[in-house]
């Protein structure tokens, strides 16, 4: 199927300490265990992403705060996400995400 790319700027709560309120998982190929990217696993009720309302489970994370995750191993991508959340996120009070979402075949 085709995918659409979406950019979200998700405001963090004033303290920003609760983060996005999203858990993400790494997916890989069953055949050769090649890393296939980081995907949204759950959106925590009442969290920043839930309040914002646009992120969906199984969205693939493509970039965070302007830093691409493509071409990285799942582990490196998660490290990039973690680092970006702690420094960049709190400074700007929001997190910019680019995600890829499968478009249902019409």
């Amino acid at each position: 199927g085709t995918r659409e790319f979406l950019t979200f700027e998700i405001p963090l709560s004033d303290s920003g300490s609760a983060g996005l309120g999203v858990s993400v998982k790494g997916n890989r190929s069953k055949e050769n265990h090649a890393d296939l990217g980081i995907f949204v696993k759950s959106i925590i009720h009442g969290g920043a992403a839930c309040e914002d309302g646009r992120l969906r489970i199984n969205d693939q994370l493509i970039a965070v705060n302007g830093e691409s995750l493509l071409g990285k191993t799942n582990q490196d991508a998660m490290e990039t996400l973690r680092k970006s959340m702690s420094t960049e996120g709190n400074k700007r009070g929001m997190i910019q995400l680019i995600v890829a979402r499968r478009v249902a075949k019409r």
């Binding site: 983060g19 997916n27 890989r28």
Partner: peptide, 12 residues
């Protein structure tokens, strides 16, 4: 689909 989770999950 030939996709599976690699077992790592982090909360952001």
């Amino acid at each position: 689909r030939n996709l599976e989770e690699d077992g790592t999950v982090i909360t952001l």
